[in-house]
Simulated scan of single mutants.
Amino acid sequence: MAPALPPLNWFRAFEAAARNLSFTAAAGEIGMTQSAVSQQVKSLEMRLGVPLFDRKARGLALTDHGRRLLPQVDAALATLTGATAAFATDQATDLLTVSASISVIQWVIAPGLPEFTERHPDIVLRLIGAVWPDEFTQTAADVEIRFGSRKQAGSDAELLGTDKLVALKSPELDGKLEDLPLIEAVGTSDGWKPWAQAAGIAPLSPSLFVDSYGPALQMAMHGNGVCLVHEHLATAARRQGLITPAHEASLTANENYYLSMKSKTAAAVAFRNWIVASVCAADTPDKIG
């Protein structure tokens, strides 16, 4: 079994002292006391069994052993610095982690993100996608946008957008809604049956099932049928003429999108204010042609 390596701090103390040829200067550089640096270097010398410095009245001088060790310690510390730098965020920026329903990331955040980044160029944004409520417990986010019931979202969450489900289809898909394929998102208590009842038409049966509203909207946009989704998810697609209403009726949904603030940093508040304002503007009927 290979012997244990000396502590990294011993090498840091040695490298700083060797570069400055002073325990006092090394201590000020690495945030330690002079006696601590001296003691750690002494401990390293005892572990290696050789002297690394000649202690002189006017300062330090490297021994031949010290000169031999220094380049290797320099290289090792440089490697560690480079390896960790890849994971470090620039201190001049704010890292904001947003955990959100994949549907919201795809259809709400992504289309409007250029506006947010233009307003807040110093915020580094990390988006974590989720589908089901329990997936949010696996991440530590500054802002969460969950899909589910009010009870699942929690009392501190705010409704994002409207609670209305609307029927949408591709402009290229012709025919009456009752005669077209219907796409339904599973895992919700809403669907085509209660929507048809609210619309006052005969019961409807879907023929294509997906796991969330985002894929349902994607499938409808490509002409695979009519989807039933939250109206604010389709704002960007409607503005681009990629999707159009298939019927004027809507249904009040039991499950919706809720935003929760898990931190009160300036970046988190800025993101919350931006997305709430964006969704509110999108839900205004005259905003969509």
Rank of each mutant, 00 (worst) to 15 (best):
K56F: 04
D64K: 15
Q39Y: 06
L69A: 04
G28D: 11
A61M: 08
H65I: 03
D54T: 10
V41E: 03
Q39I: 02
V41K: 03
G49C: 08
D64E: 15
Q34G: 12
L62I: 07
P51I: 13
Q40T: 07
V37I: 04
A57V: 13
R55K: 15
D64V: 14
L48F: 04
V73W: 13
D64C: 08
D54R: 10
K56H: 11
R58Q: 14
Q34V: 00
T63S: 10
V41S: 06
L62E: 01
R55H: 13
K56M: 09
S38Y: 10
T33H: 13
L44N: 01
P71V: 01
F53Y: 00
T33A: 12
L69D: 03
L52F: 00
Q72Y: 15
M32A: 15
L44E: 03
R47L: 14
V73G: 11
L48M: 12
K42Q: 08
D64P: 07
G31K: 03
G66Q: 05
G28N: 13
I30F: 06
A57D: 14
K56R: 15
L70R: 10
A36Y: 05
Q72M: 08
R47E: 14
M32Y: 12
S38G: 15
L60M: 06
G66K: 04
G28H: 11
R58L: 13
V41M: 08
Q72G: 09
E29Y: 04
I30V: 13
T33G: 15
T63V: 12
A36G: 05
R47K: 14
P51G: 13
I30S: 04
V41T: 02
M46Y: 05
P71W: 02
L44K: 00
F53I: 01
V73F: 13
M32H: 12
G28M: 03
G59E: 03
S43Y: 01
L48C: 09
R67A: 12
K42F: 03
G31Q: 05
D64R: 14
L69G: 00
K56N: 14
R55Q: 12
Q40H: 14
L69F: 01
Q34F: 00
S35A: 09
E29P: 01
T63M: 08
G49L: 06
Q34N: 09
T33E: 12
A57I: 11
A61S: 15
M46V: 14
T63G: 02
G66C: 05
G49R: 02
H65V: 03
R55M: 10
T33W: 08
L60N: 11
R68W: 10
L48N: 05
E45I: 11
Q34M: 07
L44T: 01
A61R: 15
K56A: 11
V73D: 10
G66Y: 05
L48Q: 04
V50W: 10
T63A: 08
V73N: 10
G31C: 06
M32L: 15
V37N: 03
V37E: 01
Q40L: 14
E45G: 12
V37F: 03
R55S: 13
M32N: 09
G28F: 00
F53M: 04
I30M: 09
L52C: 05
R58D: 15
E45D: 09
F53C: 05
V50Y: 11
L60P: 11
G49Y: 07
L70W: 00
R47G: 07
P51H: 05
L70I: 00
G49A: 04
L60S: 08
